[in-house]
């Protein structure tokens, strides 16, 4: 991979981040809705401030957030802030910044996403490879079928079904929350088990519907590769089936899967956001849910922008991984 390609990828990444930031900056400003006024309007109704005081508060807030400056100046300042990952202050938890809110909830989301994505990708890829491999035992090849049938069921709906059957009817697992009510988080074994019990259903609702997609793409790729000359050649050379499967077949079929992973990142993250909300896990999704309910605009925009940047970054990183996997790309 030469410098020009790297530079082009990086430029594309910067363009995507710029486009997303610009959209997130201008859309709310096109709307007649005034976040600060609404927020303090609520306070004035509940707290019994005098209207004049509220107006003063709003004016000082506008000044503090820089909303009284010309639009273009605000835009430049905003772009500079994005570069420093500064998304402003949360309105509903005021002294906290949006970055604090994200940092607080991020570990939960990363944990859930990492585990579920890895499990469904690895499981789907292996099942798909086996399903297309004619020498695999029949029972193993048909394990993929139930997953294929579940493909495309949105994770939220999968979550509701799991909650009903496993949580509500069978009462095997808890109905939501990060850990049982009344338990104090400690570094103990029992707390860890409790924590895991609460993570199983959210994880399953993300995994069950997505394995099938990986199975289908891997199976399609596998069927194509079996007709390739080099696989025939390996067979006639007398290599063991195991060796052909691993080195000739799996390795070549994996590449499009990695591309698929990069393309699926957006879907994976957005579906995790709703699933977290459904189960009330304290991740980014719940933070977004709460912000939507509280009209906490900086948090909504900050989270959306943060996720978009993270996805674009991961996609760019994955593109740099291809050459490590594929010698053909390295040569060019």
């Amino acid at each position: 991979m030469n410098i020009r390609i790297v530079a082009r990828r990086l430029l594309f990444f910067v363009l995507v981040v710029w486009a997303a930031s610009t959209i997130v900056f201008f859309i709310p400003r096109l709307s007649p809705r005034n976040a600060i006024r609404e927020r303090f309007g609520e306070l004035a109704r509940t707290g019994g401030f005098s209207p004049a005081d509220v107006e003063k508060l709003i004016a000082s807030m506008q000044q503090q957030f820089g909303l009284d400056k010309p639009l273009l100046e605000q835009y430049w300042q905003y772009l500079g802030n994005i570069l420093r990952m500064d998304f402003g202050y949360s309105l509903s938890r005021y002294p906290m910044t949006v970055t604090d809110v994200i940092a607080q909830s991020l570990p939960w989301t990363i944990g859930l996403l990492l585990v579920t994505t890895v499990i469904s990708f690895v499981l789907g890829t292996i099942l798909g490879a086996v399903a297309a491999w004619p020498k695999a035992p029949g029972w193993l090849r048909s394990t993929a079928t139930p997953f294929i049938l579940l493909t495309g069921v949105p994770p939220v709906i999968m979550g509701i079904l799991l909650l009903f059957f496993i949580g509500f009817r069978l009462k095997w697992l808890p109905l939501g929350g990060a850990y049982s009510v009344g338990i104090v988080p400690t570094w103990s074994w029992s707390f860890f088990i409790d924590l895991m019990e609460h993570q199983i259903l959210p994880a399953l609702s993300l995994i069950l519907g997505s394995v099938g997609g990986w199975v289908l793409s891997m199976r399609g790729m596998g069927i194509t590769i079996q007709g390739e000359d080099y696989v025939n050649f390996a067979e006639h050379k007398g290599l063991t089936g195991r060796r052909i499967f691993r080195d000739y077949y799996l390795r070549n079929a994996l590449l499009p899967q990695v591309t698929g992973l990069a393309l699926a990142l957006g879907t994976v993250v957005t579906s995790a956001v709703v699933v977290e909300g459904l189960f009330g896990l304290p991740g980014i999704g719940t933070a977004l849910n709460l912000a939507i309910r509280a009209n906490d605009f900086p948090v909504i925009y900050g989270i959306v922008l943060f996720i978009t940047i993270a996805i674009a970054l991961l996609m760019t990183l994955l593109e740099f991984v291809y050459p490590l996997l594929d010698p053909r790309i390295r040569a060019n």
Binding site: F12, L15, V16, A19, A20, I23, V24, I27, P28, L30, S31, P32, R33, G266, T267, V269, T270, V273, L288, I292, F297, I300, Y301, V304, I307, T308, I311, A312, M315
Partner: peptide, 21 residues
Amino acid sequence: CQILTPIPVLLIQVVVAGSLD
């Protein structure tokens, strides 16, 4: 199209819908 494709559309729609009264 290429620049917009990696941006998760659902999240941008969250911004649009959230900005509306």
